[in-house]
Amino acid sequence: MAASYVGVGRYCMRLVASSKVCKWQFLALQPSCRFHMYGRGFQKKLTEGLKVGNTALSLAFVFGGALGLYQTIKHNVRQHHAEQQFTKDSSTGLSLTLYQYKTCPFCSKVRAFLDFHSLPYEIVEVNPVLRKEIKFSSYRKVPILIGENGEKVQINDSSVIISAIKTYLVSRDKNLNKVVSYYPEMKSKDVKGKEITEYNNKYWVMLEDQDEKQYYPNKEARKEEMKWRKWVDDWLVHLISPNVYRTPREALESFDYIVREGKFGVFEGFFAKYVGAAAMFFVSKSLKSRHNLHDDVRQDLYKAVNEWIAAVGNHRPFMGGNVPNLADLAVYGVLRVMEGLEAFSDMMANTKIKTWYQRMEENIQKGQELSNKLH
């Protein structure tokens, strides 16, 4: 399932929730010109050292110059490899269009993934009232991703989008339609008789046997990533709404942000901001009861965030190791929608997430900068 951020009837978005990547990180570095500089300096100083007979100084300089030259060459080789790999991944001819609500946590999760992987994409902001931008689709939720590589392919559900595009990137057979078929749609009815849609394999990145170790050092790493991606969809996302609508003041602040960033008409925006804020304040209370949250829902948010940081541990910067994996991106994407709100400031001040979150911001920014550079 998927959900939007907020909603009241047809006039507001809904953030009552459910639904829903090892990565190659490439640094946008300029080629070094130091090779010849090291060469000239090395020769000059070596000659001077020999002339004065200072053998110790000469040997020290030889060692230092050789080490500097080695580091320079190593840097250039790594850069060349990274740019070659990125060019290989980005030359697939894949065109992407994301239909979204900007403040939807599931949409934010998809954007975090695409930005981190330096994938260019167009954004279509959907009007939450009429939703005419997605009238082409029988699936009436966001995010929706349209991918084109010879034919148009629609991918629904944030976690399926991420798993499918990651699979496409690592696949030897660049056939997006085939990749999407790995995540079959299943329809059923809940206890109230309402039809619900789910997807098989939604947390799986489909890898060939010979490629698995390249992206996951062991089976536990893969299981860990899937476990925490599911945790984001089943638990973390349910903490957003009760926290951003915790009080009438916070609800109004949240809707002011939503209307400002979203695609509303004048009347729709006014209605959403004031009627929606009041409605979601009361909806958040029912969500608190449904998910067995504390009276002070901040405590549940703090506990969840610290649980995540404990799982990452002190021995690695990200759950993915030296670079974020799909679980890192999912957590970051969901939490990011609270930026600028009181709930976000409280979370940063009262949990241990700040350092990890800042690392994630830096990595997302690097991905965006590389995308801009190469596209």
Rank of each mutant, 00 (worst) to 15 (best):
V191S: 13
Q30A: 15
K166R: 08
L59C: 09
P324E: 10
S90V: 12
R172S: 08
S108K: 08
Y182A: 00
V180T: 04
L69T: 13
I134Y: 07
F255Y: 10
V179H: 04
F264K: 00
Q214V: 01
K263V: 02
G313R: 01
V305D: 00
K109E: 08
K20M: 10
F264T: 06
Y38K: 09
K230L: 15
W235T: 08
V153M: 00
Q210C: 10
S158F: 02
V77L: 13
Q85E: 15
Q84Y: 08
Y302D: 13
P143G: 14
K194S: 01
S108T: 13
H80P: 09
M319I: 02
E307T: 11
Q25I: 05
W356A: 00
E83V: 03
N201H: 14
V124D: 11
V52R: 05
R14I: 07
S241V: 02
V52Y: 00
L69P: 02
S254C: 12
G93K: 09
S241P: 00
F255K: 04
D233I: 01
N127V: 04
Y99G: 10
M319G: 03
A60W: 09
G53V: 15
E362K: 09
S95T: 13
P120S: 15
S163T: 04
I162H: 01
S181M: 09
R10A: 09
K187V: 12
H238C: 05
I165D: 06
L370A: 11
P143N: 14
